[in-house]
């Protein structure tokens, strides 16, 4: 129930931020469509720890600056590789063991790996991640360990 209220609050905030017209009629439309969407989501049974993960929202906000920094660093590395006339790439598929155990943690980890250019998650089965890397240098194990630890912390506290 708390999650349903949380989803409603988020959707209504989204409506109010985008609308920009604050007359009773339009706010009424916003409340109505919010209620309809929450009702439909309850019927579809998607309001659970996965569909509305509000319990990780504060930790996720703290995680964003770090992943941004990682994205910038990885982007500069990949840009150097692409602009190098010799094109020094050595693409490879590797299998990784990640520590997040819950579904949510694995999603956060897999998406973080994909977001940083140079590494793409191709498949996840259990705690094994199949990763395509642009070059061996992108598979810095220290960095991957730190990302692993941070993702576990975000999703599982």
């Amino acid at each position: 129930m708390l999650r349903a209220v949380g989803l409603g609050a988020i959707l209504l905030t989204f409506w109010l931020l985008l609308s920009g017209h604050y007359t009773p009629l339009l706010i009424g439309f916003g409340v109505g469509s919010t209620a309809l969407v929450v009702f439909l989501s309850m019927r579809m049974d998607v309001i659970d720890h996965e569909g509305v993960p509000i319990h990780i929202s504060t930790r996720l906000l703290l995680y964003i600056p770090w992943i941004m920094k990682e994205i910038v660093v990885a982007n500069i590395a990949v840009a150097k590789v692409i602009l190098d006339p010799r094109l020094p790439i050595s693409p490879r598929l590797v299998t990784f063991h990640g520590s997040p155990k819950t579904d949510l943690g694995r999603v956060v980890y897999a998406n973080s790996i994909t977001l940083t250019p140079g590494t793409i998650t191709i498949g996840v089965s259990g705690q094994e991640y199949l990763i395509h890397a642009l070059s061996a240098a992108d598979l810095d194990s220290n960095e991957q360990d730190e990302m692993d630890a941070r993702c576990t912390q975000v999703a599982e506290g």
Binding site: I71, V78, A79, P117, I120
Partner: peptide, 10 residues
């Protein structure tokens, strides 16, 4: 796809 990720993120 790695290069495509660059346009999307940075």
């Amino acid at each position: 796809l790695h290069a495509a990720g660059m346009t999307d993120t940075m």
